[in-house]
Amino acid sequence: MSVLDKLRLGGKTALVTGAGRGLGRAMALDLAEAGADIIVASRTQNQIDETAALVRTQGRRSLAVRVDITDSHSINAMIEAGRAAFGQIDILVNNAGGATKGMFRPLDTIPDTHWHMGVDTNLSGAVYCCRALLPSMVEQGGGKIINITSGFGVRAAKNNYMYTAAKAGLINFTRALAMNYAEHNIQANLILPGIFPHDDPELIEFWRGGKFIPVGRVGQDAELGPACVFLASNLSNYMNGQMLALEGGGLAGGQAPCGFAPVVPLEEDSV
């Protein structure tokens, strides 16, 4: 089999949460491009209908399922609906998550409800999805879990508490999955997207076009999909509990401001 053929996902079914727009939609469409049928899930019906229609224009089957990612009953129902439609689910992409502006506030002003909402949205939802799906993945002899974390899962930011804690939790939850399900031929890995403003001019302005990112630009949604295909494919079968970061080099540095570049020649007598 050619190395590029190993990227093919024909005959597989992928469930992508948060797939109504942005990165989730980009990943869903590229998984479809690689041959997978797609279960498109999120809370907003018209958005998932749109993504599902786009999947069908690629000649793949799709199913749009509304889900409240903070509610395990809603998640169990989504998994059931997916299995009923496609027989089995081979690839799970836990992409749903995010934070509203109101979530970023000093620690002593965070009400319990905000804390729980932030952690449920960005961590518990992925846990519920895995819990509901993994037994059948074991039974069918294997599968792929792809969890979407964030730069804030490994680095902190001001007044960012539940998002950063939940995304960090998701990273080690993924390692735990890798440890426990490795023998069942299930690989669990992470994608860490950097700054992706989804072509929104306001967001691009907010992130100053990515000036502070080593490569000097922000990410394009379309760049995430191929990473997802790679992790969903047979090309990554020995990769487990790992993180693939697409972030333009920020994490390689981080101990000094972007562009920090002192010059210190060797003293003459030390050559």
Partner: peptide, 25 residues
């Protein structure tokens, strides 16, 4: 192959580990 391809242009300074879960120990 993936890292060498055009679609990996936003990945730099990273390590893709293929280690069968060894580093999760």
């Amino acid at each position: 192959v993936y890292l060498a391809s055009d679609v990996a242009g936003f990945i730099t300074g990273q390590t893709v580990w293929l280690e069968g879960g060894a580093l999760s120990h």
